[in-house]
């Protein structure tokens, strides 16, 4: 319990007394929001996951791609 308390205070006091760190955390938060909410969600769907429901379908699709010029 004492150890947990120490760990809690390490983070709590550390964040509280930050100077430049606050600006950096804000920047990190904005960046992660842009990356994961806007960029990933709007522009970067996982093509194979959105197109197909199962791994078997994905395998079939890729095999078709690898061999289609030969059929």
């Amino acid at each position: 319990m004492h150890l947990l308390n120490e760990i809690y205070h390490l983070y709590y006091d550390g964040f509280k007394s930050m100077k430049i760190g606050k600006k950096l955390w804000l920047l990190i938060a904005i960046k992660l929001f842009i990356l994961f909410v806007i960029v990933k969600w709007i522009f970067f769907p996982n093509i194979l996951k959105t197109k197909f429901d199962t791994d078997a379908q994905r395998s079939t699709y890729i095999l078709e791609q690898l061999t289609k010029n030969k059929e």
Binding site: L24, L27, I28, K31, L35, V39, F43, F44, L48
Partner: peptide
């Protein structure tokens, strides 16, 4: 570290798309 954090994750997005 803070500015560079997660810039590499975009490459993983690109792999999937």
């Amino acid at each position: 570290f803070a500015i560079g954090l997660a810039t590499g994750i975009i490459m993983e997005f690109e792999f999937g798309t």
